[in-house]
Nucleic acid binder design. Structure first.
Lengths: 168, 168
DNA sequence: CTCCTAAACGTTACATGATAACAATGCAAG
DNA sequence: CTTGCATTGTTATCATGTAACGTTTAGGAG
């Protein structure tokens, strides 16, 4: 069973906000995600090369999406690459391997906080106040008979609890 | 109550494919949508100017999304405008007034087939075979307590019934 | 260990998508 | 009429994304 936040679009609303919207031990958050990424790659044979690892680390710095060119700027500053394909290829690898996701509304990318969990239908809660994005599990009920779903994009934009309370 | 296709993500899978995936009387389909658009604009005071009306007609030609530059090419051919802002402004108007929707996955726009229906949470079924897109109603259950949803993006890519049967 | 191949990387050039800013025009209310 | 605001026209530029091609490198086959 998935342990991701213990949240699901199918069950009743959870009582606790997702971790991305709460203060938490982010260092262990990052460490866990990197560890999971290493394991997954080791298991699948995917190669987590220096640029790819670094891009994942950069994405993991915050629970908020980054544009490909933002990532590229970071890589450039660190001497790891300066041309768009460098960033897009690394991001593509991470997305293909479930280590990151693309947020369509924002044309941006975010690290997957729990890549080992079953992750076939992620949904994203985008707070327009603080810019944080939380990943939760989604299952779309009631797809019309005969339509075979292969991929889903589920994104909700709004205000997280903290930003609702203090609308600065 | 919404009459849109009588489909909902909340109820059991409907037995009939959405109209966009079936042969149908498209002329009356278009006429109905234009009529509804006129009424809505008359009621709200929004001005359905020639360019805006024409863009809506162009989008209504098929149940498939068009890129802003595709629309612009059509406008240009008809002498209605040749610069990107012309297309983007008309599309923006249509989206703001619920007469069209943006498909985020595709960076494209599609006419709303039933703009008078309640339309607060549309979901889109995108067939990668024929390129058609059907709009159905979606309600996301189980949003975590405290997150206030303002807008949703729900898109499912896959194969419609017809394309599943004949995978050319 | 050496060779071979497939994957990864670096770079150029370009394609596609979107908007800021400002001037000119139209239109409707007072 | 005239004033004010929405709409349109245009320029210029920014943002996002990818095709294509040659080079390098890692890792397995022999």
């Amino acid at each position: 069973m998935s342990t991701k936040e213990n949240l699901s679009f199918r069950q009743d609303a959870a009582s606790t906000p997702p971790r991305a919207f709460r203060p938490h031990d982010h260092d262990s958050c990052v460490a866990g995600a990197m560890q999971a990424a290493e394991s997954l790659c080791a298991e699948s044979g995917a190669r987590l090369t220096p640029v790819r690892r670094r891009v994942l680390e950069i994405l993991l710095e915050g629970h908020r999406p980054m544009g490909a060119y933002d990532v590229l700027a970071r890589l450039d500053a660190e001497g790891l690459g300066s041309k768009p394909p460098v960033a897009y290829r690394a991001l593509g690898f991470l997305v293909d391997n479930g280590l990151a996701h693309r947020i369509e509304r924002l044309n941006a990318f975010i690290a997957c906080p729990r890549p080992t969990d079953d992750n076939h239908a992620p949904a994203f809660l985008i707070c327009r106040g603080c810019g944080s994005v939380a990943e939760v599990s989604a299952t779309l009920p009631g797809i019309p008979k005969g339509f075979r779903v292969e991929r889903t994009t589920v994104e909700a934009e709004g205000l997280c609890a903290a930003c609702t309370d203090s609308p600065e």
